[in-house]
Amino acid sequence: MTDFPAVHPEPVPVLALGDILLVTLRGDLYDGAAEQLQYDITQRIANSPVPVGGVVIDLSGVEIVDSFLGRILAEIAASARLLATRTILAGMRPAVAITLVELGLTLPGLATALDVDRALAMLHRAPSVEGGA
């Protein structure tokens, strides 16, 4: 961990894996890029010709999540849910999780998984959205 994590002023790509959208966040995210991502994901779900089976956000490369990014993640999940799509946060690091809890952001109602593989397995096991939160 000697090198600086890359700063991303450019938009974060949203990849399609079958019917699942995969977003990989790395290093430090600009506020603008996070807001753009929220818009992109919602648009992709809404405009998809086939129903989107789920959204997986890979956080394993993220070193900090502050309340701004936390809010964006919660809002992505909330809008996806309105569009009948599940969102799973995958691979959050221990230090990030401890900090978020200390900050008071436990993100209730957000599904989580240890890594992308597990997240994909969870989506395949229960492809439909469960009714409640």
Binding site: E63, D66, S67, F68, A95, V96, T99, L103
Partner: peptide, 22 residues
């Protein structure tokens, strides 16, 4: 990191800095 803070303490500090700077 240079001062020798552990990873969790580093992360908390950076997060607090991000909140306050915003």
């Amino acid at each position: 990191a240079d001062l020798g803070f552990g990873l969790v303490q580093q992360t908390k500090l950076v997060t607090a800095a991000s909140e306050l700077a915003r």
